[in-house]
Design a protein around this nucleic acid. Sequence first.
DNA 1: AGAGCTATCTAAACCGGTTTAAACAGTGCA
DNA 2: TGCACTGTTTAAACCGGTTTAGATAGCTCT
Lengths: 348, 348
Amino acid sequence: MSKQRPTIADVAHRAGVSKGAVSFALNGRPGLAQATVDKILAAADELGWRPSNRGRSLSVSKAFALGLVITRDPAVLSSDPFFPAFIAGVESVLSSRGQALVLQVVMAGEEEEAGYRRLAQDARVDGVFLSDLRHDDPRIPLLEELGLPAVTLNRPDGTSPFPAVILDDRPGTAAVVEHLVELGHTRIAHVGGPPAFVHATARSTALLSTLAAAGLEPVAVETSDFTAAGGIEATRRLLTLPQPPTAIVYANDRMAIAGLGAAQAAGLTVPDDLSIAGFDDSELAEYVHPGLTTVRADPFAFGEAAARTLNLVVDGATDVPDAELPPAQLVVRRSTGAPPSLGSPSPA
Amino acid sequence: MSKQRPTIADVAHRAGVSKGAVSFALNGRPGLAQATVDKILAAADELGWRPSNRGRSLSVSKAFALGLVITRDPAVLSSDPFFPAFIAGVESVLSSRGQALVLQVVMAGEEEEAGYRRLAQDARVDGVFLSDLRHDDPRIPLLEELGLPAVTLNRPDGTSPFPAVILDDRPGTAAVVEHLVELGHTRIAHVGGPPAFVHATARSTALLSTLAAAGLEPVAVETSDFTAAGGIEATRRLLTLPQPPTAIVYANDRMAIAGLGAAQAAGLTVPDDLSIAGFDDSELAEYVHPGLTTVRADPFAFGEAAARTLNLVVDGATDVPDAELPPAQLVVRRSTGAPPSLGSPSPA
DNA sequence: AGAGCTATCTAAACCGGTTTAAACAGTGCA
DNA sequence: TGCACTGTTTAAACCGGTTTAGATAGCTCT
């Protein structure tokens, strides 16, 4: 019989007070005698009562949940090493506040918009994380229209009513280029991500401007799609150039590791014949052979900061400031070294 | 003013009927004249009304959401290629039913139990997916006690009140071993996952019994933790054996790719000196050099089947049958080949 | 003693649905 | 004409909280 969850009425009855009093006690509202509060909390404790999320949700019109929509395009993002750690960081903030994370995986295109609409219409979440920003991202006006609070992961290029949580990729990218230049490379190529993404072009332009600052021009800039398959393709194109690069900087580790495989399959030795650098410091980066020089960010901290910032917005704070995280750092491993022309006579 | 969401009362008023009638019409309950139903649905349509999840949740005591708890131990599971695809499969079923997926990432140990308790106490979900089963998994009695419906991903070893969704790893594992034996290998080693996991031991025992059926014994069986770092460690131990193996079968791709790196770092050529096989067919498997021979499952279909099965339980069906998926398949790539003793004289 | 406070607490409305019991209208039948 | 019956619809209770307006009690002050 008493297998049912106790409700606020049970607690009220047991403590000999009204439902309202219990609610006041629970939420620390003033206007109750301390003795009464103690009595109520004791009763709640004895009954093991925890307020029902559903009741609360209905009466205060909040979901006590945040949403993350991951756009799973066959070509993009399918197994990004970023998300698990990011989500763990988000979770570490949510769990202490009794919030939940609602995850939605959708295809790109129309389905994506539908995904956000559903989240908003069903009032499933109080706010969303906007990841993988695109230029003139259509989701920003969409969320504005839907009235759904959000934070953007990094800064969008257009105007945005939402605070941004920023982890600057550019210093790390610049550091990679400087590292290669110091090693003596002058023929550097780049494999970037889809230019529709803000972070893809941010990395690419950081690379180009760092090269320019060193008085260099890239041998070639390939546009790829962040996947291993794309990395292979781009690498093959670069290696068959009349004047192939002595170093390739990839916009993420997956493309870099695939590129490493492609280079080795083509008979090259890394880093003697070709230096390779990635971005992300994914788990495998350290363990492939040779270890991949890359750029390390802290997606867990990113998740924490994003959750905290989004909660400020959700809680109704106005003018929430952007949150800035320490920028990503260069991690030098064995996949980068001096260019072949310095170590041994060039075969031309 | 009219910026607010319409409620069922608005629809009722517009259609000139009672709230109850609208509810009946919406849910296709009998007892309403067809003309009335049409009138109600038209009114709902004009107002763009969608029933509030919160109201429904409260009155029918359902969350319209399913939960997935991922145990994120530093050592295990951190960036498993399985989950993104699995979640996408789950989502494809949930979205059509208007359900949401609540994701929880917790550390192993006590926090894990707390995670499930929270999900149950907060009544955030109607059921959960139980992944990465362990032997005598404590979560099964826990969920039973909590009264939270579940499905297990693969079959637990103890008794379980929950249906299982099964994707048999063993045929694929056996196929790997047979493939190596056919190539002529007799000195085969294994790097398994933590024996606490049901799927880890399932793969290991399948390997051992297939070897035995071929009249062979493993050179060595290393127990590792599914991480790249662990794969490196185990590989180093195997390679420094007095009689090192000519082939290593890993329980997942991450360990295998790391092992590949370790072997190459040790100066070995794969597959000439050492054959390597993984499990999962993760994205990079195809693109590392040499391409990794591995076993491919279909986590998307797994997710679909799991979601469908869990929904049967949640909807109150009794005696839900287990769902069985096509077993994982061997994918042969370049990382496996004839053992060195056959191709060239052994250096002993 | 009565008015005016303040501190404490309660009753009741409300959030937006579902569901049950009862009301109502119309029909067939004795 | 009255009764039973079917088909249709509604009013009201209910889910479990929060919140507002108002009741009550105790106290001070004149």
